[in-house]
Design a protein around this nucleic acid. Structure first.
Lengths: 137, 137
DNA sequence: TGAATATATGAACACGTCATCAGATGTGCA
DNA sequence: TGCACATCTGATGACGTGTTCATATATTCA
């Protein structure tokens, strides 16, 4: 729209509060930006995937359910730690438990998370040591 | 493979170390599992997206570059905090800076992360208050 | 050069998070 | 009922992380 209004007399800045360097882009970004709650929820999901241990558990579940013991085995973690992680993931409805005798089998229960994991796995597969990723500071 | 060998005399467990309840699935999960380094890197990326502040910054950049001031404005953060966050994202090559006079414009620089953000945004858009997400503990 | 602005950095602090250990709960079986 | 096994839970302590404030660097302009 008015990308070249030239004069740029003054921005009302009533509702927004402060002045933007590029009001157009700021407005655009604000439109697309989800509400605080949505951002927070999304961040939380990412955060759940942000722990190597939990991530490994979830990756292990991509092919199907596994019991806690085997999950701990595959992820190379203690069973207690695994259980704690599963509790967290369960609380966020990312995994779901199924009891069979004394064992409890967990499965991925969030299709969205599954997509994220698939995507991450795909990326991992063909990136393979082409990025340094760690160098600055 | 030998899913019903019946007797299951004993698992060598030399290389693996311990005994699995479901050796087949465990083996399968182990095959698909990326190496430690890949898992760690992937988790790190997710972790970067796991902070609401950083997530907002990145979401704001989906439509194009913004200077630090405007980023802070959109994300509702202090400029210092924004700068710190950008430093981190920069170190991981998620964003890239472009100087223009005294201002520095940042842009998304990782197509993979962009995909993750788009996916997250899409999911957010149509999920909208259908999940409680927060209840257990 | 010196003032003003934009961004970056360093240090300190408060906070949440993860791993570990001990023990509780639940389930199957003799 | 009592024991063995699988999982869960709670508490503790070490650690990492985000936020803030003060200050440094960089750039423009007079």
């Amino acid at each position: 729209m008015n990308t070249s209004s030239d004069v740029q007399i003054e921005v009302p800045s009533a509702a927004t509060g402060e002045e933007a360097v590029d009001p157009g882009r700021v407005a655009l970004a604000r439109e697309r930006m989800p509400g605080e709650a949505e951002v927070a929820d999304t961040a939380e999901v990412f955060s759940l995937l942000g722990d190597p241990g939990r991530l490994q558990l979830l990756l292990a579940l991509l092919d199907g359910e596994l019991c806690v013991h085997d999950l701990a085995l595959v992820a190379g973690q203690s069973e207690s730690g695994t259980s704690h992680a599963l509790k967290l993931l369960r609380a966020h409805r990312v995994v779901a438990p199924r009891r069979e005798g004394r064992r409890v089998y967990y499965r991925l229960d969030d299709p969205h998370v599954r997509m994220l994991l698939d995507l991450a796995l795909a990326h991992t597969a063909h990136t393979e040591a082409s990025h340094p990723e760690r160098g600055e500071h």
